[in-house]
Simulated assay, not measured.
Amino acid sequence: MDEDHISFLGYEFRGASVHPRGKVTPARIRDADWTAIVPEIRTVLGETLFVPRERKSDLEAFCRRHGIERVARPDVWEDLLEPFLDTRIAPDQESATLDRLRDAGFAAHEVSAIRRRLTPLMLAYNFDAMVWAWAYLGLFDLLHAANAPVVDPGLQADLGEPAAFYAWAMAIADRHR
């Protein structure tokens, strides 16, 4: 991280404003969360950019230096991707998840459509690629699955044009502020 911008080198998520290389200035940053599972920046346009964990203290220092607020927000993708975890989801837990999604503005038919669209990708990612995540899958995992070499490129291609898929995922993530 430089004094006046954050550089991204080799950013792996196709469609990102910083893919494969780019920078973000403080004026483009809405907020950040350096304490998140994977530290993140939220741009004023609603894009979530992820920062390597080993740079979390650098991200915190950068944000403090530029007066960028730390905002911890729920990852709506955690609830949307819950069925793809390597664990049994109890009915009361599933009901609570659907309640949170409803409260975030997601109708039941939309949740079903999102999950149906992502089923082949997320099953391939978490089970076929042997990730075996059992506690958490979120936006970072979804983007990783859509770009990782461990997932069949045909399944990734079925998602559509990478920039359009990325924009769709970001728009969903930004709905729950």
Rank of each mutant, 00 (worst) to 15 (best):
E60M: 12
V150Q: 13
A157M: 01
L137I: 06
N126S: 12
S7Y: 09
E47L: 07
L143I: 07
E110F: 01
F13P: 04
A90V: 05
G67R: 12
W77E: 02
D4L: 07
S57H: 13
A104Y: 02
N126W: 01
L118N: 04
V151D: 07
P83T: 06
E54Q: 14
H5S: 14
R65H: 14
G105M: 11
I41A: 02
D4C: 02
T48E: 08
A16Y: 01
L45C: 13
E110R: 12
T25W: 08
D103N: 11
D31S: 15
E3K: 13
G67Q: 11
R73D: 03
R21P: 00
A36K: 04
D92A: 11
A61R: 14
D99K: 11
I68W: 05
Y166I: 01
P52R: 13
N147P: 05
A129W: 06
M1V: 09
W34M: 09
H176M: 09
L101N: 04
R177E: 15
D103A: 13
F62R: 03
I6H: 04
L139R: 06
A90Y: 10
I114C: 06
A27K: 15
R73G: 01
P74K: 11
A32R: 00
P153I: 08
D92I: 07
A32E: 03
F106P: 00
D152M: 06
P20W: 02
S17W: 02
E78W: 00
A16C: 08
D79S: 10
Y136W: 06
P74Y: 08
W168E: 13
E12P: 15
S57A: 15
G46V: 08
T25R: 14
L98H: 11
H176A: 11
Y11N: 02
S95A: 15
D58P: 07
A72K: 12
A61P: 02
V151G: 05
I172V: 13
A96C: 03
D86L: 10
Y125D: 03
L85F: 05
V18A: 06
D75H: 04
F106L: 10
D158Y: 00
A124E: 08
I89Q: 10
D103P: 03
L159A: 03
D2I: 01
R21E: 12
R175E: 05
S7Q: 14
S17L: 09
D103Q: 12
A104V: 08
G67S: 10
Q93R: 14
R21Q: 12
P74C: 04
A107W: 06
A157C: 00
Y125W: 15
I172P: 03
A148F: 05
T97F: 00
A96D: 09
E60N: 09
R42Q: 13
E94W: 11
A107H: 11
A169I: 00
A164L: 13
L101K: 01
A145C: 09
D99T: 12
T97V: 08
R175D: 03
R70G: 03
A96N: 07
F165Q: 01
N147R: 07
Y11L: 06
R14S: 11
I89N: 06
R53D: 11
E40T: 12
L81N: 03
F140L: 03
V150P: 00
L9A: 15
M1N: 06
D58Q: 15
P39E: 07
F165C: 01
R102G: 11
L123N: 13
D31Q: 10
F106R: 01
A163T: 09
E94Q: 14
D79C: 03
P91K: 11
W132R: 15
Y125I: 07
L59Y: 05
S112E: 15
